[in-house]
Amino acid sequence: MNLSQQVADYLAQNPNAITLEIAAEFNRPEGEILLALPTEFVRVFPAERAEEILKEISGWGVFTTILEKEGSIFEIKDRFPSGVIGRGYYNLNMKHQEGALHGHLKLDNIAQIAFISLPFRGKESYNIAFIAHNGHTIFKVYLGRDENHKLFPEQIEKFKHFK
């Protein structure tokens, strides 16, 4: 049985499972699990579109950017900043002070970008995952929520209609 079928079967049995739990269950990197999700939950884009996607989402408003490292999870709730290419990196937040997120993203390390619409702990959720060549998730950007924890409808529309 291939990984896609295993993930679909697991989700059928565990509908509230999160992708990190599934990755642990199958002893696989999370990015591989994201790419193996049933097609109703994932749209995959090639790495060549990374700069375009990053520029696009910088105009979508507030997100929660998630970095997971060795089981620790870091969250930054802010606009996703614009960036510029330089010295082999997509350099975030270099032109203006656009909030808390700064850094340097090595575009060559991105293999694929996955738009995920899988519920998170039973709640409607959407994220964009940047996946490395080794199958690990570099980072994820979750659509934002207001003070009442409601998703921003305009972000959902942009997410769903991104081609």
Rank of each mutant, 00 (worst) to 15 (best):
A23T: 05
K69V: 14
I76D: 05
F63K: 05
K55G: 09
S58W: 08
L20H: 14
K55D: 15
V62L: 13
L37R: 10
K69Q: 14
I33F: 10
A23P: 04
R43L: 00
L34Q: 15
E70G: 07
L54S: 01
E70I: 04
F63T: 01
L54T: 00
I53D: 04
S82E: 15
N27L: 08
Q13S: 12
T19Q: 09
L54G: 01
I22G: 06
S58N: 11
L34Y: 15
N16L: 15
V62I: 15
F63M: 07
N16S: 13
V42S: 03
R79H: 15
E51V: 15
D9S: 12
F80Q: 05
T64V: 11
T39S: 13
T64Y: 02
Y10P: 02
E30V: 10
F41D: 06
P38W: 06
A23Y: 05
L67R: 09
G71T: 03
I73T: 10
P81V: 12
A50V: 08
R79A: 11
A50R: 06
T39M: 02
Q13C: 05
E52Y: 06
T64K: 09
D9N: 15
N16F: 12
R79D: 15
K69W: 12
F80Y: 15
I57T: 08
A23K: 04
P38K: 03
S72I: 13
A47F: 02
F45A: 05
I33L: 06
S82F: 07
R28Y: 08
S58D: 02
P15F: 13
E70N: 14
D9I: 13
I53C: 04
G31N: 03
A50F: 04
E68F: 06
E32C: 00
E30D: 05
E30T: 12
E30G: 09
E30R: 14
Y10H: 11
E70M: 05
N14Y: 15
R28Q: 15
E21C: 01
A47P: 04
I66H: 04
E30I: 07
T65W: 01
L11K: 02
I66T: 04
E52W: 04
A24Y: 01
I73V: 10
G59Y: 13
S72W: 12
I73R: 13
N14A: 03
Q13P: 00
A47G: 06
E68W: 03
I66D: 01
N14V: 07
T19V: 05
A12R: 14
T39K: 13
V42L: 01
G71S: 08
E68N: 09
E68R: 14
F45M: 06
K55C: 07
R49M: 02
R28I: 01
F80R: 03
E25I: 00
D9R: 13
P15N: 10
E48K: 14
G61P: 07
E70K: 08
L67H: 11
E52F: 07
N16D: 15
E32T: 01
A24M: 01
V62F: 14
K77V: 01
I66G: 00
I53S: 04
I53Y: 08
R79I: 15
E25T: 04
E56G: 00
D9L: 13
N27V: 04
P29M: 04
